[in-house]
Amino acid sequence: MKTFLWSQGHIGWPSLAIVVFSVLCLLVTDAVWRTVKTSARSVLLSAGFIWAMGVIAIFTISLHWPPT
């Protein structure tokens, strides 16, 4: 977990990736909510699911990185 948050004098790449991914998710969700004719609830549920999958994927990749 130490390398996840902080590694070799800089922010851990996985945590930075999660922050970037979360902000992109937020902005894309807002754009989809404004442009697609569907309920806000379904947009939020879809965005929440995609965000959770992304975070799990980043975390999983960080556990097995670098590949041996």
Binding site: G9, H10, I11, L16, V19, V20, V23
Partner: peptide, 17 residues
């Protein structure tokens, strides 16, 4: 150090957005 500066710039940009 360079990596930390780049990361800080990225975080500042995201915070602004």
């Amino acid at each position: 150090m360079v990596i930390l500066i780049v990361q800080t710039v990225i975080l500042a940009l995201l915070a602004t957005l």
